[in-house]
Amino acid sequence: MKTLFPHPILSLMLLGLWLLLVNSISPGQILLGALLAWLIPLYTARFWTAQIHIRRPLLLLKLTGTVLVDILTANIAVARLILGPRAHIQPGFIRMPLRVKGNVSVSLLANIITLTPGTLSASLSPDRSELIIHALQGNEPEAIIADIRERYEQPLLDALEQT
């Protein structure tokens, strides 16, 4: 089972991707997609060194919901900042030590930080222990870090990493 389907999540994503790409759910396309979803992970197995273990799928789903809502608020907030007086923008760099360690969770956290209100992940240190974040309202770094910790990092830790 492990050797035949080395990456079940990747296989499912490939099947979904194929069906979206051909824009059809006819039996023939499902069969072809399933074949590709089986063969591609098999032949590219050596590229995928990291295994994802989703320990709490529901929590991850809830996080996705939070992030989607936050993207909407982010857009409205950024729209206000662009159209309002420029003096309201007081940018600054923030240094945030990371508690998540895995490849997948660090990259997810960095992407979430960029997509959500007023923050942008600017640089990850080579040892993956800290992020430099650029914030549009950077006068309260502690509050921003605490917010990111509570809303995104903790769920990621709980859902993806061993404690």
Partner: peptide
């Protein structure tokens, strides 16, 4: 760095 915020979000 400010400019980077807008295109990615909006």
């Amino acid at each position: 760095y400010e400019r980077l915020h807008t295109p990615t979000k909006a």
